[in-house]
């Protein structure tokens, strides 16, 4: 069964914002990603989103594009990502892992094999960026059959009737895209986020996690105040880009990269929401 709901319930009980770092799996190699995942958890990440590298990431900005290019140059494949998730799960039985990616690698692997691979690896949720509900085929049902959450995006351009339909098929958490654009863009229109989240809140009890454009304590605090947590992607991938070669030999550098998440964790926890 997915670890997402228990994780979100704990955070809700402690009135603590969910903090979810995103990193490209295999950037620049799987050993580094695994070491980073452990560091991120140690510094307060509640869950981890692992990006499945794809040659044509048309919803991503330049920072994540470069991360994907590094991962592919390092030989990352979807099978390798599943293996990475399994190795993480061997060491950490508690932190939810969500795979986020584009449909083609999943389509070429086959939905059945992909779902079985996720189940074996202890993956908790799957988000396919370029697969709207209407085109999802039997993938959601296959994932549901293994107790894996189906996470969908809602964006500023999602009409309310469509949001209602998306919510009906979403489990785990709802991913709210904070801006019109690609990952790594600047968060500009905070008021519209507030309004849209208030609208969504009336439609669902699912945790609403806000992503895109969140890059430091200030943006994380502002967005966390509107929803149930935040996703930090490009800002972390930028830190990974700056790692020295053979980063696993430099644990202090990996710790430093992950410290972005540590800082945001402390900011969220001191935000007065936390009672303990």
């Amino acid at each position: 069964m997915s670890r997402i709901a228990p994780c979100a319930a704990r955070a809700r009980e402690q009135e603590r914002g969910l903090l979810i770092p995103y990193l490209v799996a295999g950037d620049p190699d799987f050993a580094t990603t695994l070491a980073l995942m452990r560091e991120l958890v140690a510094r307060g990440a509640d869950m981890i989103e692992l990006g499945i590298p794809f040659s044509d990431p048309s919803s991503d900005g330049p920072v994540i594009q470069r991360g994907v290019e590094r991962a592919l140059a390092g030989g990352a494949t979807l099978a390798g990502v599943l293996e990475l998730a399994r190795r993480f799960r061997d060491q950490d039985g508690r932190t939810p892992v969500i795979l986020m990616g584009y449909l083609n690698p999943i389509e070429i692997m086959g939905y059945g094999e992909f779902t079985a691979g996720c189940a074996r690896a202890g993956v908790d949720g799957v988000l396919v960026v370029d697969m709207p509900l209407a085109e999802a085929g039997d993938l959601p049902a296959l994932l549901a059959g293994q107790g894996i959450d189906r996470i969908f995006l809602v964006s500023p351009t999602t009409a309310p009737c469509r949001a209602r339909e998306i919510i009906e098929y979403t489990s785990g958490y709802l991913y709210y895209v904070s801006l019109k654009g690609v990952t790594g863009a600047a968060l500009e229109d905070r008021e519209s986020v507030a309004g849209n989240i208030a609208g969504l809140r009336k439609l669902t009890d699912l945790p609403i996690i806000i992503g895109f454009g969140i890059r430091d304590e200030e943006t994380a605090l502002a967005m966390n105040a509107l929803g149930d947590g935040v996703i930090i992607g490009s800002a972390l991938v930028e830190k990974i880009e700056a790692l020295p070669p053979e980063a696993t030999r430099h644990p202090e550098a990996i710790g430093e990269a992950a410290e972005l998440i540590g800082r945001v964790r402390r900011a969220l926890d001191h935000d007065g929401k936390r009672v303990s």
């Binding site: 048309s58 370029d130 709207p132 209407a134 085109e135 995006l153 964006s155 351009t157 469509r162």
Partner: peptide, 12 residues
């Protein structure tokens, strides 16, 4: 065929 785009473009 079909419509395989990110959520931001679905409406457009």
């Amino acid at each position: 065929g079909g419509v395989f785009v990110g959520e931001t473009l679905v409406r457009a």
